[in-house]
Amino acid sequence: MTDERKKVIEVKDLVTHYGDRMILDNVNLDVYEGEILVIMGGSGSGKSTLLRHMMGLETRTSGSIKLMGEDLEKLPMKEAFDLRKKIGVAFQGGALISSMTVGENIMLPLAEHTSLDPQTMEIMARLKLEVVELAGFEGLMPSELSGGMLKRAAVARALVMDPRFLFFDEPSAGLDPVVSKQLDELILKLRDAMNMTIAVVTHELDSAFTIADRITVLDRGKTLITGTVDEIKNTDNERIQNLLNRRSEEDILDPEEYLNRLTGGDVRPNAVW
């Protein structure tokens, strides 16, 4: 069914490390044009790392990631820069610049990357504020906004260049259920109106089931499953069901590995650290 659609993100055999620690272990994933892909998994499963790699913010150990057929790591600087302009990102904490007004924050990508007339930029910023239901807030400072408003302002900034790809890291984290639902509705509206390809990292099940076209579930750096909401709900994989039903799982304890972890792998007389 999905094969006829255009693949716009292709992750192949992705392996990544932070230092010696392996974070993603041979992840494979395709994202299709105009779909909302939700990345789920427990804490430390590698979901935010996968998102950061899809945006080209991290250097991988091996494997490949292509956006619209191009590998950001292998493109010449100018082409990579142009491709990055097609990406909008709304970070977990909003990441607005505190010394600039909301309007200036939203216009920043336009001021940096275009030579549009200031009047055009201002109207574009106000249009995005309308879309995220923050009309009239352009003159306020980020510190004057609530948590939900900050997230929406960050979405407005992510949208201002009309990106083809929109990446969200934990959009609902720390928001009350009503605001969280509004954000879900906004994500759906953006997909429908602008045919954006959207990747969302979340651990909020309700949100994932509301917005996702497909969900990929990561566990300890590996892909457990990628499928539609129904496929995920109906899987008989125990680890996925545990995750969905919020059951904690007791790790099988390997005494030798545990002792090595505690002792740093070597017992040294009089060692402090």
């Binding site: 055009t120 930029m121 574009m124 009309d162």
Partner: peptide, 8 residues
């Protein structure tokens, strides 16, 4: 949006 802004 830049095109829409021109129309506005």
């Amino acid at each position: 949006s830049s095109g829409v802004a021109c129309l506005v």
